[in-house]
Structures are given as structure tokens and as C-alpha cells.
Amino acid sequence: MLVLGRGNAFSQVRLIRGASALVLLAFALLLLPSISGQEGKTDEYRAKANFLAAFPNFMEWPADAFPSAQAPLLICVFGDFSFGTSLAETTRGASIRGRRIEIRWARKERDLRACHILFVSRSEGKRYARIFKAIQGASVLTVGETPDFLASGGAINFLFDADKLQFEVNMAAAKDAHVRISSNMLALARHVVSRAEAAKS
């Protein structure tokens, strides 16, 4: 795995705790990226990076999801790493509940079980079954960006609604990963779907 973002310096994300994190997440919802052209892509990546950086504030992993008390929280990107720069920049020096955040570019399926948040790029849309099999039973919260991601077993999916980047949540997938998502985050979700609804979508 390629480590892209780490360090101890202060950053904007270091400050996003509690209510501030909620403000950041709500702010991310207000971004209106134009999704056409290169500039639009940059805005989309930045918005997704902001979301991914804020998500850990609203999630709890079981203690055994970390190899040690000091182990970092790993946000992995699998597939096309188009917005990796934005994500690494956004989370540089960030820490959540005493754990440093590291951004990793996961290149092999065997790397995925170590991740705490796994962003699956749309470039991997045909490999969902293999990816979910690779992380089965592990505390890996998956985030995707295609309409069939939740139906395939994903926990959170990015979508555009009224030109705004939003997210939808499949609580069953989060529960299966033993990750608790806070009500404050769910309240900001565009959709919260049940296991049955996710399967039908």
C-alpha cells in the first residue's frame, strides 16, 4: 500500500471535533460543484475529500479494529486515485480521538482488511463482489460513488442530488462491519436505507 498522507502538523481537520465536525459536514453538503469540465472534477474531488475527512468524527470502530492504542485510522482509496491529492491535503496532520489519520492507496485486495474507511472508486465498479468478499468480517466501512454500490453491499454512497454532493447510508452494511454511525451524520444523509431497500435499489 502506498502511504500518501501522514504527519503531525496541525491542519484544518485537526480542529474538526464535535459540533465543528458537524458544521464541516453540513458545509460539505452545501458545496455546489459544477460537474462538467476539469474544474468541476476538481470541485467534486474536493467535496468528496471533505466528506471522507469528516466521516470518522461520526463513526465508532470496535477497539479490536486497531492493532494498538496508537495505531492510525486508515482511510484507503481503492482504484482510480483521482482525488487522492485533495484527500491527502485535507487530512494532513489530522487526528481523530487521538489517532492520526493516514490516507493509503490500496492496490491489492489483500490490503483492504487493514482499512477503517475504504473508498471504492467507480473504476472498480465491476469488482464489488470480490472487494466485499475480501473485507468480509473486518471492521471496514465502505464508501462508494456508483448507484449500485449500496445494493452490492456498500455502507455509504456518494450521489449528486439537485447538483449537490450528498450521501446515502445502508445501516445494515455498517452494522455488519461493526461500525456505529452517529445519528448526527444520519440526519444529514440524503437516504438511510434498510437492508431490504438496499437490495432492491
Binding site: M171, A172, L186, V193, S194
Partner: peptide
């Protein structure tokens, strides 16, 4: 069903 019968989450 949506919250996987998490009563605390539902109340929140």
C-alpha cells in the same frame, strides 16, 4: 428496520 433496530439511534 432502517436503523437495524438500534433503539438508541432511533431515539437520537
Amino acid at each position: 428496520e432502517r436503523v437495524e433496530n438500534d433503539q438508541e439511534l432511533l431515539r437520537e
